[in-house]
């Protein structure tokens, strides 16, 4: 890849077309791949994981015109190969210092809690009940509650876990939007 290569709109569109002919699906796949790349770099202790994920995407985008007619298989694996190379390059560079994990002050917590309560109202009653029941309690009570929920919904415990996680992710997204609106 040429140094200082910048992802143009045209290159981005070509990348999306390669991921999926349906633009909406392609956009989802793009975001999904980016999030997975961030996890991969994070797990490899790269403190600039988001930058490396973006670098991977840029590099893949720059290669798509060359490979799109010949590449066979899941495009995700091509991202993996490029990410792997970028990680090797990263190891040869001096890693930047590790930032500290910042928690919230009480004012931010209050704002976040207010948004959370609003967002819970946007969930369907069934999803609201599920997510609250799934995550509440401790130890034995929690295990029993989850077991019962799975029985009632007639799903496997792991399916319940994933469903609760998806609703939690939906809540998180809603809370972030709510906080953004408050800041505007």
């Amino acid at each position: 890849m040429k140094k200082n290569w910048v992802l143009s709109q045209e290159a981005f569109d070509t990348l999306l077309d390669w991921l999926d002919t349906n633009r909406e699906q392609a956009g989802q796949k793009y975001e999904d791949i980016r999030q997975r790349l961030i996890r991969i770099f994070t797990s490899r202790k790269c403190w600039d994981a988001e930058d490396l994920a973006d670098e991977t995407i840029n590099r893949v985008a720059s290669k798509v015109p060359e490979i799109r007619n010949t590449y066979e298989g899941d495009p995700s694996l091509f991202f993996y190969s490029v990410a792997h190379n970028i990680h090797r390059e990263w190891l040869r560079r001096k890693p930047p210092p590790v930032p500290a994990l910042a928690l919230m002050d009480s004012a931010s917590l209050e704002k976040q809690s207010s948004c959370l309560e609003k967002c819970l109202e946007f969930l369907t009653p069934q999803n609201r009940e599920l997510v609250v029941q799934y995550y509440r309690d401790e130890k034995k009570a929690k295990i029993e509650r989850r077991k019962h929920l799975a029985q009632r919904l007639n799903i496997a415990p792991n399916a319940l876990r994933i469903r609760a996680c998806r609703i939690r992710a939906e809540l998180l997204k809603c809370v972030e939007n709510c906080l953004d609106k408050q800041d505007q």
Binding site: K45, E50, V98, P99, L101, L103, L116, R168
Partner: peptide, 23 residues
């Protein structure tokens, strides 16, 4: 170390705190 990296994971921690308070 892991959750100080990436905005999304930091958001998860912040959300987790308010979620626990709510519960």
């Amino acid at each position: 170390l892991q959750f100080s990296v990436g905005e999304e994971r930091q958001r998860k921690v912040r959300f987790g705190r308010s979620w626990q308070e709510y519960l």
